[in-house]
Every structure is written in structure tokens, then in C-alpha cells.
């Protein structure tokens, strides 16, 4: 399973996580190339279906990277996102798929290092789980 390269979709808040991404880029910290970044104005607008669709298309993992709870410009964006991630975790569990394949991370705008760490952690987690079985 060593050659397994998980396909991961990351939904990133354009205010915090994406700036962190920029910082990380400046720091020449490489993001794993198997992560597809989707920038959103606020994680609070990510619908449950958005989080499910990647799995339908063959993704092995999905995560949301958003603000710290006290720094969301739209007050409760990340809180809402976290609840939807929880909902999708429950759905995945019901479908017999490991709920760890989806997660939510909170970070501040300047933390480039953290952004890369989170990405690597998610890759490791999903690698550990292996691909979503397709019978």
C-alpha cells in the first residue's frame, strides 16, 4: 500500500487558510500534490452535499480548513462548517466508510507551517486507512 497516493479535497477559507497557504508558499513549504484545494469565501457556506460530492467522484479524503472560532469574519462560519463535517462523518459511518476520512481544522491567517502540517496529517490519516474500497 506504500504506493497509494490518496486523492484529497481541501475546502479552504479565503481569509485564513488560504492566506496561510500563501505564507506557506512563500516559505517554500511544499503542499502534497495530491491535495486539491478549493477556495471558498467562508467555510460556513460549504453545504453538506459539497462535502459528499468528492467521495462520489472518487476522493479518499476531504477536509475543511477554516478560521479560529473567534476570528471568523462572518462570526459563525467555521462553527457551521464543523457541524456539517460532523453530519458527513455520521453519513459515512452509516455507509460503512471510516468517518476519519473527513475532518475540519482551524488555523490563523499567518500560519503557513501549520497549513502544510495539517495537509500532511490528513494525507497520513487517509494513507493509513487506504483507498475507499470499491469492492
Amino acid at each position: 500500500m506504500d504506493d497509494f497516493k490518496p486523492q484529497i479535497v481541501a475546502f479552504c477559507c479565503s481569509n485564513c487558510a488560504s492566506s496561510a497557504a500563501k505564507v506557506s508558499h512563500g516559505m517554500k513549504k511544499a503542499l502534497p500534490d495530491n491535495i486539491k484545494l478549493i477556495q471558498v469565501p467562508c467555510t460556513g457556506r460549504i453545504e453538506t452535499l459539497h462535502l459528499l460530492k468528492p467521495f462520489e467522484e472518487g476522493a479518499d479524503g476531504v477536509y475543511v480548513a477554516g478560521c479560529q472560532e473567534d476570528s471568523c469574519q462572518y462570526i459563525s462560519g467555521i462553527t457551521k462548517a464543523a457541524k456539517r463535517v460532523k453530519q458527513v462523518k455520521d453519513i459515512l459511518e452509516g455507509l460503512g466508510i471510516e468517518p476519519e476520512r473527513i475532518d475540519v481544522f482551524q488555523m490563523s491567517a499567518g500560519k503557513g507551517q501549520e497549513f502544510v502540517e495539517v495537509a500532511n496529517r490528513m494525507v497520513d490519516t487517509v494513507k493509513g486507512l487506504g483507498p475507499v474500497p470499491t469492492a
Partner: peptide, 20 residues
């Protein structure tokens, strides 16, 4: 319509997982 989408997607993910 939203929940229709979620349920339909869930059924597809499961179908994919089961190879059906």
C-alpha cells in the same frame, strides 16, 4: 431538493464502495 441531493449522493457513494 437539498436533502434529495444528499441522500442520492450517499446512495451513489455506497454503490461505488460496494462495486454496484
Amino acid at each position: 431538493a437539498k436533502e434529495v441531493g444528499i441522500l442520492a449522493s450517499s446512495l451513489r457513494i455506497h454503490g461505488r464502495k460496494e462495486g454496484r
